[in-house]
Amino acid sequence: MPFKPLPADQAMPMLEWGLNWVITNHAHQYLILHAAVVERNGRAMILPAPPGSGKSTLCAALVNRDWRLLSDELTLIRLTDGMVIPISRPVSLKNRSIEIVRKLGKRVVVGQACADTGKGTVAHMRPPTESVRRMDEPARPAWVVFPQFIQNGAMTCEERGKSTAFVELVHNAFNYNLLGLAGFNAMCGLVDACSIHRITYGSLEQAYRAIDALIEE
């Protein structure tokens, strides 16, 4: 059994982790990246980052600014054609990001916060109806952005070399080794198809500006 039983009030986080576990352990028809992914005009932006970098907060913020939610946690790259397959589920928020997301706007619905889980306090944001309605519609990857929130930091944006990005993405992949040659080919395709940047930001406003500048290029 992969999971130990948890108290009943942690059922929602447990369900989310259980679903993640099932996908990362079984859905090997995809290259699976630990990354949020959003879409606009048919083009997907992949946001890979370690926990604590502000990836989910940024993802929640973007989908409240007319980006379509594909996933806040798992980017599924279809091996046959390199398309990103959506999993439009509630966005998982942790600790301080819960309050930040609650304040994003009137349309935002965040569920009950669940304290003292293995990852601190956890709550989930309802995915936009439009994203759920279009969950069978894949998107072509166009950008990879490595985000890093820095408290009181300044906005920076720099392009990453393809080979450096390749290695970083491998570190963020769940099943790269397991897929062998198919995984290598999918990763090459992804890196070739995308413009790749690293941004740092001290506020969501700064992040929006950096991302707006990127998509206008």
Binding site: H26, H28, Q29, L178, L179, G180, A182
Partner: peptide, 16 residues
């Protein structure tokens, strides 16, 4: 079939 194919691909990787 997807589950079985995944298992098969895994076993091919295992051989390497």
């Amino acid at each position: 079939r997807r589950h079985l194919e995944t298992a098969w691909n895994l076993s091919q990787r295992h051989r390497l």
